Simulated assay, not measured.
Amino acid sequence: MRREPIVLFDNGEHQCMMFDDLVSREGVQSNQFLITDNEQYLLLDPGGDLTYTPLSLELSKHIPVQDLTYIFASHQDPDIIASLDKWLLHTRARVICSKLWARFLPHLTANYLALSRGINTFDRIIALPDRGQSFALGKCTLKAVPAHFLHSVGNFQLYDP
């Protein structure tokens, strides 16, 4: 099983890597992407429990995982965002997702987050309006593009110019 990411783009300051071989045996392999720009980091669709450990180990070879800036959830399926509680516990990342799904994400986080670490899931969510939104990562601007017709209502794709 190959674990190293495929580098899709790298100009020295901005990089995009794809992780596509993290789940073995049963389970759904969704692709995870890491976009870095000037020491800010965005993880796209971090996956579920089967993906969390291998992905976090691979990420740690490329970035300080605790300094993850954003987690982008294109939609709310378990293979996309079910590992959210672990990412909130071990990073300072804010979660970018559809405003439709923002109210459901706290259901994926355990009470121990709030009780033991004082983490409020709602305070770490950036809820995207239906029309989409641009946001900064380092010195670049990424665009959340509405794609509600592609998979489900509230689905977004990320455009990295």
Rank of each mutant, 00 (worst) to 15 (best):
M1G: 14
R2S: 15
E4C: 06
V7L: 05
L8I: 08
D10F: 01
N11F: 08
H14F: 11
D21C: 14
D21S: 13
V23P: 05
R25K: 14
E26W: 09
Q32K: 10
Q32Y: 00
F33P: 01
T36S: 15
T36F: 00
L42Q: 01
P46S: 09
G47D: 04
L50G: 03
T51V: 15
P54C: 09
L55E: 01
L55V: 03
E58M: 11
L59S: 08
H62I: 05
D67A: 08
T69L: 04
F72Q: 01
D77S: 11
D79W: 11
I81T: 02
I81W: 01
S83Q: 04
S83T: 07
D85S: 15
K86T: 01
H90G: 00
R92F: 05
R94P: 05
C97V: 13
S98P: 04
K99L: 08
P106W: 00
P106N: 02
H107L: 15
L108T: 02
N111L: 12
A114R: 09
L115P: 02
S116L: 15
R117H: 13
N120F: 13
I125W: 03
P129R: 07
P129M: 07
D130H: 12
R131I: 11
R131T: 10
Q133P: 02
S134W: 02
T141L: 13
V145F: 10
P146A: 07
H148T: 06
F149H: 14
F149Q: 14
H151V: 15
Q157F: 10
D160K: 12
